[in-house]
Computed example of a mutant assay.
Amino acid sequence: MRTFTSLALLLAAAGIASADAPKKPSVGSYAHLWNNSPFTSKPPPPAATEQVSAFDDWALSGVSEVEGGYMVRLQHKKNAGETQIIRPSGTMKYFADRMEEIAAGASGAFKVDSVDFGKDKWMETVVHLSSGGRNGIVKFDDKALLPKAGAAAPRNGQPNPNGQPNPNGQVQPVQPGQAGQPAVRPPRPRVAPPAGGR
């Protein structure tokens, strides 16, 4: 047994003596660590965001083909009562207190470049506009198309015939025969034929 142990030790010593000395690894073998490190790698590119149109304050409220191009009606989303009707011949701008006419191609006028009509729904129609080097699109907007809550409010404190609150907050009852209610015909007075008639 002793000879077997000494023989094993002798062979192990011979193997160690014949083995090469350890070599230092090349710097390139560690390149993947600093190229793919979560601490040094660049963040992923930001997700694509929807670009804001140069005409984002406007909503499409109507479009039709006319001779020479398109007639497009735009409604301002923030300024109530401000609209534009763009025709090939020029633009009419309507404000709450005035209107203004702008010739086609004049400074500040919107130009209709193209119209993509919705394939399934008319609400998917997109109009491409340009003005003064700016390009963008306008679409139908449900919120802009709905009438404002105060749009049907009566003027001068008059009662509202639809049973809606008037400006002082009181609800006026709907009278028969007024808008929103079926008309109730009052009874007709009987007319007697003239005496001595036929």
Rank of each mutant, 00 (worst) to 15 (best):
188 R>F: 12
47 A>S: 13
144 A>E: 10
95 F>K: 07
74 L>D: 11
190 R>H: 10
164 Q>P: 00
195 A>R: 14
75 Q>A: 11
84 Q>G: 06
76 H>W: 05
29 S>W: 03
68 G>F: 01
142 D>F: 09
131 S>H: 04
61 S>K: 11
155 R>N: 12
172 Q>K: 02
160 N>A: 06
107 S>N: 10
141 D>S: 10
75 Q>N: 10
10 L>E: 04
59 A>L: 04
7 L>N: 12
154 P>V: 05
151 A>N: 12
156 N>F: 12
73 R>C: 01
104 A>M: 01
133 G>M: 05
42 K>P: 08
124 E>I: 00
128 H>E: 11
45 P>M: 00
169 G>C: 02
104 A>S: 12
69 G>S: 10
40 T>P: 00
110 F>C: 02
92 M>Y: 11
33 L>I: 14
108 G>R: 08
164 Q>R: 12
57 D>M: 07
3 T>N: 08
83 T>H: 08
98 R>N: 15
80 A>V: 14
98 R>S: 14
141 D>I: 01
135 N>C: 06
18 S>C: 08
84 Q>M: 15
96 A>I: 12
15 G>D: 09
83 T>Y: 10
138 V>Q: 05
27 V>H: 12
88 P>E: 03
81 G>L: 04
22 P>Q: 07
7 L>T: 15
163 G>V: 05
1 M>H: 13
168 N>F: 03
42 K>G: 02
112 V>M: 04
165 P>E: 01
30 Y>N: 01
181 Q>K: 06
168 N>W: 14
167 P>L: 04
174 V>R: 14
96 A>W: 11
63 V>I: 03
115 V>N: 08
140 F>Q: 07
143 K>V: 15
180 G>N: 07
12 A>D: 05
140 F>E: 07
7 L>Q: 08
184 V>N: 05
108 G>T: 07
120 D>S: 15
47 A>K: 15
31 A>P: 05
25 P>I: 00
136 G>L: 04
184 V>D: 02
93 K>G: 05
21 A>C: 09
36 N>S: 13
